[in-house]
Amino acid sequence: MQSNNPVFRRSEAFNGSQANAYGNQTFPGNGTAYDGYGQTGVQQGYAPAPTTGERMTVDSVVQKTAISLGVVMLTAAITWWWVGDISSPSDASIGTLYLALMVGSFGAFALSMVNSFKRVISPALVIAFAALEGVALGAFSKFIDVFIVGTQAEGLGNNVVMQAVIGTFAAFAGTLAAYKILDIKVGQKFRTFVIAAMFGMVGLGLLEVVLQLFGTGTGILGFGGAGLLFAIGGLVLGVFMLILDFDFVEQGIAAGIEERESWRAAFALTVSLVWIYTNLLRILAIFSQD
């Protein structure tokens, strides 16, 4: 079961470490093959592979994902409180806000790269990523609430952060329901498109940051028309990323991979949900500006 997703691609359990003479993948340490594409097997062609310990299950993925998201929300709340009230750009707390935003963003990005390409998943690194991501989200949410929406905004502006949180979980539930009810099948072209689009958006975002440092830019990270289009594209892409996550969890369970890989699935789901939240928050903020 080869993957273009970098989160799962480095996993020996998801991809197998070698192939036998008949093209079947084998898991490291047991030598037992499961059926490859186009061959007859159980559960869409993937026969369970024996493991020395417990296997990944839906419950184990849910538990690990709940832990990861819990850490994100906890550190985000702590960061929101730690930054304190900000009424103007001259407040002393503004330095704390930018410090939290920079440390959390760059730290989470670095650990996301490590977790994505690490062959053996580390629960500690997943938790560390979640903690730093929470710091970044807490600071970013405070920034949106104060400087984009405005603390005195009426109606939607007063609850934009909470609505983005609710909207994120609604997107998760809706995507999962559609995936199961419509029995969505993920093909190789779809995987390639989603991963390429994800890296493309990340690359454009980093380029925009560099351009802004030199006093120019395209506005795709701003809160105007270009920023709105970029955020809407990011939101749609986040939903596609969730579909990939659901597919790999389903295939991993069918293949009988080890329970520790639940942490890899939890990391991938956390990344997708954070991606959806940040883009949804930007969209709501754009429509809620003073």
Score class of each variant (00 low, 15 high):
Ile67Asp: 05
Gln212Asn: 15
Gly41Phe: 03
Phe287Gln: 14
Val58His: 09
Ser93Gln: 15
Arg191Asp: 14
Ser116Met: 13
Thr216Val: 13
Thr218Ser: 15
Val72Leu: 12
Gln18Ile: 10
Asn159Ile: 12
Val160Ala: 02
Leu97Ser: 03
Glu12Thr: 12
Ser60Lys: 08
Ala130Lys: 01
Met201Gln: 13
Arg191Gly: 11
Asp290Thr: 04
Ser90Glu: 13
Ala268Met: 05
Ser116Pro: 05
Ala77His: 07
Ser105Gln: 13
Trp263Glu: 05
Ser17Asn: 13
Gly215Trp: 11
Ile184Tyr: 14
Phe199Cys: 11
Asn159Trp: 06
Thr52Ser: 13
Phe240Lys: 03
Ala100Gly: 10
Ser11Glu: 14
Ala33His: 04
Val236Leu: 15
Ile127Lys: 09
Val71Gln: 02
Leu280Met: 08
Gln43Leu: 08
Ser116Glu: 11
Gly138Ser: 06
Phe246Gly: 04
Lys189Thr: 11
Asn115Arg: 07
Gln152Tyr: 04
Asn5Trp: 09
Ser105Tyr: 08
Ala173Ile: 14
Ala66Arg: 12
Ala268Asp: 02
Ala21Phe: 06
Leu132Pro: 00
Val194Ile: 07
Gly200Gln: 08
Val209Asn: 14
Gly45Met: 12
Gly107His: 03
Ala66Gln: 10
Ala139Tyr: 00
Val120Ser: 15
Leu74His: 05
Phe267Asn: 09
Ala178Gly: 08
Ala124Ser: 13
Gly150Met: 00
Leu281Thr: 00
Leu235Ile: 05
Ile220Glu: 01
Thr65Met: 11
Gly29Trp: 01
Ala196Gly: 12
Ala49Met: 03
Gly84Phe: 03
Val103Asn: 00
Gly222Val: 09
Val274Gln: 01
Val61Asp: 00
Thr32Ile: 10
Lys118Ile: 12
Ala153Val: 00
Glu54Gly: 14
Thr40Cys: 01
Ala136Thr: 06
Gly107Ser: 02
Thr192Asp: 07
Gln289Asp: 05
Lys64Ser: 11
Asn158Cys: 12
Phe248Ala: 09
Val83Phe: 00
Met241Thr: 10
Thr151Arg: 00
Gly38Gln: 03
Ala21Tyr: 10
Tyr46Thr: 05
Val7Arg: 05
Leu284Gln: 02
Val72Trp: 02
Ala177Pro: 02
Val58Tyr: 07
Val146Arg: 04
Ala108Trp: 03
Ser288Trp: 02
Leu237Ser: 06
Leu101Thr: 02
Ile220Ser: 03
Ala21Cys: 10
Gln251His: 15
Leu125Lys: 06
Arg119Tyr: 15
Phe214Ile: 12
Leu237Thr: 11
Gly138Cys: 05
Ile195Asn: 10
Ile232Ala: 12
